[in-house]
Nucleic acid binder design. Sequence first.
DNA 1: CGTTCAATTGATCAGCGTCAAACTAGGTGG
DNA 2: CCACCTAGTTTGACGCTGATCAATTGAACG
Lengths: 232, 232
Amino acid sequence: MNESETTDIRALPIFAEMADENFESLMRGSYVQNFPPQIELISEGEPSDFLHVIISGAVELFASWNDRESTMAIVRPVSTFILAATIKDAPYLMSARTLEKSRIVLLPSTDVRQIYDIDNGFSRALVTELAQCYRGVVKNSKDLKLRTSIERLANYLLKQHSRANGNGAFELNIEKRKIASQMGMTPENLSRAIKALKPYGVTVNGTSVHIADADDLASLAKPDPLIDDPLS
Amino acid sequence: MNESETTDIRALPIFAEMADENFESLMRGSYVQNFPPQIELISEGEPSDFLHVIISGAVELFASWNDRESTMAIVRPVSTFILAATIKDAPYLMSARTLEKSRIVLLPSTDVRQIYDIDNGFSRALVTELAQCYRGVVKNSKDLKLRTSIERLANYLLKQHSRANGNGAFELNIEKRKIASQMGMTPENLSRAIKALKPYGVTVNGTSVHIADADDLASLAKPDPLIDDPLS
DNA sequence: CGTTCAATTGATCAGCGTCAAACTAGGTGG
DNA sequence: CCACCTAGTTTGACGCTGATCAATTGAACG
């Protein structure tokens, strides 16, 4: 791990407030690895040996049951994932695989738990982080239960749009099939949902999206900060 | 608040490890109230003024968007709810209403945040609690995304069945419409789903459920600890 | 230039929601 | 004590959303 990476990790909210010596001790026990795409990093049901921090690339969190599979989230740098399993020393509820070439830090779960027991800055940061994660999943559930697939797509596009400076055009940075699964639909249905948004000024060509009039689209999407705002 | 109630609250995992003086200070600032059924305790979007602890009765957490409404969870004693909003000093993501006559303790959010800043036992307990909550919502999402409504119902019934000692018969303790909404379906659809489980030995009469052969039902439900186990 | 896999399209079908009506149970008041 | 009212539940009919299956197109890569 190089120095700038250590700095990036240190800057993460969950590590920012902890004592220097504890942070260094955490880092000493850690591993950094580069993974090619499509590597399964962890499997649902396994004991949580490591807290993962993604430095570059992209990771998909997904879940399976009865031969079905669903994308639960896409994680991008710089952030941690499967924090809750690490804390509770419980089996992973989701599996994770790299979508792109990714650089990932592995912090032994036992170290994380040990230090969270003694470092109050760390434990307080974890409270905030987990509260945030919790709220994220709740928002996701609301999205799933209260909206149709077209409404979900409309809101998804608006969110990506504003994330890309909102100038009318942006690129999808993940496969459509993953987007579809994440939003609880099939690839075919996503394809048709995109067409259904044409009357609202949405044009999609490959990975490039054009939104003619964000307000028009928003009139359908009815974005709600209590569902769509990543903050708060 | 009487003494046995204070003891019950103190016994909750999130309060068990905190210093006596901090617990007492929290309790001093708290209110206890009895609410009739159907009272809206909190509304989605409002600032989180109080952490709620339910002592008796039942509370529904629900969410709304665009004139639609969905039951997100049912909370039973003794437990807290809307902890994450309190911690983050953020607006509630869900509303809450009493389903039955309920006794509820209100702890001012500012007090909770203040004490969590100074009491390390408390902040560590919050980490565990929030990790648990997070995992609960993730399991719920998996249930929703990976299963059909009939499979969800089958698993729901098995869970209630084992909770009621697994002797073949038990009572539904909430309205069917709420059960339906919680599982992401309409009351009509729940009604039909129940019928669809008849070949698996499920009989429902009013609120009383009879399960002839739990193994038979489980062969359809395929319960999975990573979705259905409340613990871990 | 061919192989491979994602994305699209069309056709069909199942699951589920909607609407309307009938039925039931619990509670109230005469 | 019974009639009635109200609200939840059930049933039937129907239609829409979205899944499935199959086939084609398109794009990336060796």
